[in-house]
Design a protein around this nucleic acid. Sequence first.
DNA 1: TAGATTGTTAATCGATTAACAATC
DNA 2: TAGATTGTTAATCGATTAACAATC
Lengths: 209, 209
Amino acid sequence: MHNKSCIMRLSRYRSALTNLKLLNFNRVFSDNLADAAGVTSAQVRKDFSIFGLAGNRRGGYLLDDLIAQLDKILGKDKIQKFIVIGAGNMGRALLNYPGFEKNSIKILAGFDMDQSKFAPNAEIPILPLEKVKDFIAKNTIQFAIICVPVLAAPQVSEILISAGIKGILNFAPIRLKEHEHCVIENINLVTELENIIYFVNAIEKSSTG
Amino acid sequence: MHNKSCIMRLSRYRSALTNLKLLNFNRVFSDNLADAAGVTSAQVRKDFSIFGLAGNRRGGYLLDDLIAQLDKILGKDKIQKFIVIGAGNMGRALLNYPGFEKNSIKILAGFDMDQSKFAPNAEIPILPLEKVKDFIAKNTIQFAIICVPVLAAPQVSEILISAGIKGILNFAPIRLKEHEHCVIENINLVTELENIIYFVNAIEKSSTG
DNA sequence: TAGATTGTTAATCGATTAACAATC
DNA sequence: TAGATTGTTAATCGATTAACAATC
């Protein structure tokens, strides 16, 4: 099994390659791609060799080939079904995010505890949280995104995991621990901003003092 | 200067500590905190020693002390002013995100090109993009969050940097490159989800095959 | 062929962890 | 004092990079 940053890079390569394709490229060299993805060319070739992605020693890599193979590795050769828990601002933004569909990511429904948020007849329905277990089973959902308040998050993750969810992206500002039967990824918006704030201040201090 | 993951950990420690404080803790041991933040206790002590955060060899660390010192390091001892560019679903979700204010992060305004999004009299106003430069100058803003479509993102970042923005969090699905005068952090939602999908599939394969 | 790029190995680099002396 | 925890040094580990032979 490979490590997280390696997989994140594969995903970035793919994203960069689709941009290059829009510019009518047919082939790329490790150098081009490295530049677009913000890594070194040695890193690109190393990553590719790990996953058996081969090029031509003189002509680089064929764009279509490469994208197709990355799609397979990243599970983009079939639709991946998601649900969103919590239909607050962030939850609703994700329900309507236009970038998912063209990336084989489909959000089937949202869930909330607050009656005023329900929208059972919307294109992507928002349903009561107590229906989530049934919904997961009926639609064989593997993935969920958590956008509930911090206090609700641990409990919600328990419910999801016991209902059979295998992968969670958590936006609630509490670190949900990795689980034996479920991959969990945490994004903490405040932490991301604090990181930026720190480095801006650090640069200022070092240039001032 | 320290590396990104170290600073991200400091931020996570802080977040974990405020949770422990809610549970009426007065002191923590490196062990407790490590558990709450998902790292080893050696890592906690190492990080603390780098930043001169000292404890008591028998009594661990005083919670209030620790939080106050982390606040200083992370720039939380004063209000950090942000703007949001792009008032689509994601942009508006961030404008209304309740977790920022109690973390010394204040969003002063949103900006968009689409007239139908304007809301100059809202509590957090949404203004025309062409006013962004003036607004940044007048309000001495250092930080921005980009939530515009992928094609607009590079141009928007240029505008912001030339207007004096020093730190950017970018949600558009294109990697904006680090800039001499500006710290840039990219979050690509699709990449995060692809990462989860990959590891769920990898686990399934390894347990099946 | 000559030139350029891949694929891979070995070297480097840095971050994490283990271990333990200091000390409360 | 005995016991427990910090603070720090040295060892380990793994990821990144440099370099170059293979080859198109």
